[in-house]
Amino acid sequence: MIALQKSATEKVRRVAKGEAGQLRIGYISSACSNFLPDLVRQHSVSHPNVQVTLLDLTVHGQQQAFKNNDIDIALTSPISDAAQPMELKTELIYNDEFVLVLPQDHHLTKVPSIALIVLRDSPFIVFKREEAVGLYEQTLNAFKAAGVTPLISSQPRSMQTLLVEVGAGLGIGIAPHCIKRLVSNTCAFVKINDVSVSIPLVAQYKHSPMNPTVSSFVNLLAERKSEIQRLVSPQ
């Protein structure tokens, strides 16, 4: 009986310190694929009794997951202050930039950069507004900065679908640079030289009360932030 009481007390202590329990992370695969695996692996080494669950979700899906208490932390694009739940804290991880996504046989795939206005008469494929309102608004800001009124031919719900549609010749894509990390042998990615719009990736989590397992992961993110920024740099 004493041994069971000690075991139960130790379990409670571990959970309270974030050394045991669960950590459910919602993430955007294109934005996180080249740093999240190593980050989770490092966290698991130092916190072997924390069960980590990774959920590939759009921004909209992450916000719904927070409402349903299905995730503890999101690696996501920020939403407007008006739509932001008060209990969520937001911390910047890194800033991305837009690139043009061209079909592999497009005549401009070999140039180092393109002015967006050069392609003003092309049909454009952009990520669906309802899945990431902030990204959609940033995309429109990029067109506005270039003096382009876009003909938007498609709004896919996933970045992988965007690549498939561009590869099929259905339009020109505009997306964050991180899309290059997804699998595609039918698309080329070219820098845009007449607009500069930062696309932040942030960590969002409930901080009142603060989940101890989230706290340990947030601390690891802070420690690795400079390394992550170097790793994902578009330059």
Rank of each mutant, 00 (worst) to 15 (best):
L88Y: 05
G167A: 07
T149N: 13
L163I: 06
Q160A: 13
A132H: 11
A168C: 04
R181G: 11
T109E: 02
Q138F: 03
V126Y: 05
I172W: 01
A175E: 11
E137C: 04
I179M: 01
L140M: 15
I172N: 01
K110H: 11
K144R: 14
F98M: 05
I152W: 08
V111W: 02
P150H: 06
L162C: 04
P103S: 10
P156W: 06
L182C: 05
L151C: 01
P123V: 11
K89M: 12
T109L: 04
S154D: 14
E131T: 14
N185Y: 06
D121K: 13
P156Y: 05
Q104M: 13
V164R: 07
K110I: 02
E130G: 05
V148G: 12
E165R: 12
A168M: 12
A142W: 06
D96R: 11
V101Q: 04
M86P: 00
V148E: 09
V118L: 13
D121W: 03
R181F: 12
R157P: 00
K144T: 14
S184A: 09
G147M: 10
L140R: 14
K110D: 11
L170A: 08
M159S: 06
A146M: 12
L116C: 10
I93T: 03
E87Q: 13
V99T: 05
V166L: 02
V101N: 07
P123W: 06
A142Y: 03
F98I: 06
L102Y: 07
S122W: 08
Y136F: 15
F98C: 03
P103A: 10
K110Q: 14
K180E: 13
I179L: 02
Q160N: 07
I179A: 02
K144M: 10
Q104K: 15
D96Y: 06
F98R: 06
I117E: 12
I174N: 03
I172T: 04
R120S: 15
L163T: 04
R120P: 02
V118E: 15
Q160G: 01
Q155S: 12
L170P: 00
D121I: 00
A146V: 13
V183P: 00
P123I: 11
P150T: 06
Q104P: 00
F98E: 02
R157C: 00
T139H: 11
P176I: 05
E137H: 13
P156C: 08
K89H: 12
L151T: 14
A132S: 15
L108S: 11
A146Q: 12
T186G: 01
I114K: 07
